[in-house]
């Protein structure tokens, strides 16, 4: 009995310590961002003027919008094409199914590093470097494997009677998909969307390579990287405020949808 008490005490202590350490860096930049910068004439210990300066001086009013456009574009298109592909993989008789799965698996572990050089040349050749296309199209491709496997797993678990009865009623595969399967998959699609939103919002390397010269379309993490690099030793409080701004949309989404995020991140890796 007492040994179990000690275990409970030690275990909870370790978990709480772990949680505090997980929390500390973010809390510290928030506190940093709210504190007055050198030369500030703010009245109290807390001020929002660092956020104003980051918003204006760092161009984050543009880059947060760019990030939102990119994320919405990638989430919507990937969700659509992965639902279609997942439906075929789970419920239709796809020829060479195993081979297709194998090809999809490549995308699951393929690092961005393996394709940035040709992607750069490709978009340069098309004159699309430094445009939204250059960042949206490759990210749809990188999300496709995980998303298709995710939807395939979910659709495979649906009771077969549903589509069977639809077939008996004379519905073709498209009708069965749009009327029955797709609506039933909306919860899985919502979790998947959280996951893709997270990956897309936080992406850095592709943005650095494909959007370096156009502040109008730069995503928030890229702007933050440039801003923090350029102002390194001068305005730490403003950089902290910028970092909070970049993290805020994801943190807010996480606060409301934490279950979906955690489920996505822990199960997303298990697919396939």
């Amino acid at each position: 009995m007492t040994s179990r008490r000690i275990e409970s005490f030690v275990g909870h202590g370790a978990l709480i310590l772990g949680a505090l350490i997980a929390l500390y860096p973010f809390v510290s930049i928030v506190r940093h961002a709210l504190g007055p910068a050198a030369g500030s004439n703010a009245a109290g210990p807390f001020t929002l003027e660092n956020f104003t300066r980051a918003w204006v001086g760092g161009g984050f009013s543009h880059s947060l919008v760019s990030s939102a456009i990119v994320a919405v574009g990638v989430v919507v298109v990937t969700g659509a094409i992965a639902s279609l592909a997942g439906y075929a993989m789970a419920m239709l008789d796809v020829p060479w199914r195993g081979a297709i799965m194998g090809v999809l698996l490549i995308g699951l572990v393929l690092p961005a590093e393996a394709r940035i050089v040709p992607l750069y040349d490709m978009f340069e050749g098309w004159g699309l470097l430094n445009t939204y296309w250059a960042i949206i199209l490759p990210q749809i491709a990188s999300s496709f494997s995980l998303s298709t496997m995710w939807m395939t797993t979910y659709y495979s678990a649906l009771p077969k009677e549903l589509t069977e009865s639809a077939a008996v009623d004379g519905a073709n595969s498209w009708k069965a998909f749009t009327r029955i399967v797709f609506p039933l998959g909306s919860s899985a699609l919502a979790t998947l969307s959280c996951l893709i939103f997270l990956y897309t919002w936080n992406e850095f390397l592709l943005a650095l390579v494909l959007l370096p010269q156009n502040p109008a379309v730069q995503t928030a993490p890229l702007s933050l990287s440039f801003f923090a690099g350029a102002e390194r030793n001068t305005q730490p409080e403003v950089i902290a405020a910028a970092a909070v701004l970049v993290a805020l949309p994801v943190v807010i989404a996480y606060a409301f949808l934490q279950r979906r995020f955690i489920q996505g991140l822990t199960e997303g890796a298990v697919k396939g």
């Binding site: 796809v94 394709r115 050089v117 040709p118 040349d121 749809i140 298709t148």
Partner: peptide, 27 residues
Amino acid sequence: LRTTAWLYLLPGFAFYGAFSLWPLIET
């Protein structure tokens, strides 16, 4: 029906092929 199944895969694999697989081959 088998041909139909391919049609559902087509849009996704167009993106995946053009912006993941093809660049990989080129690398």
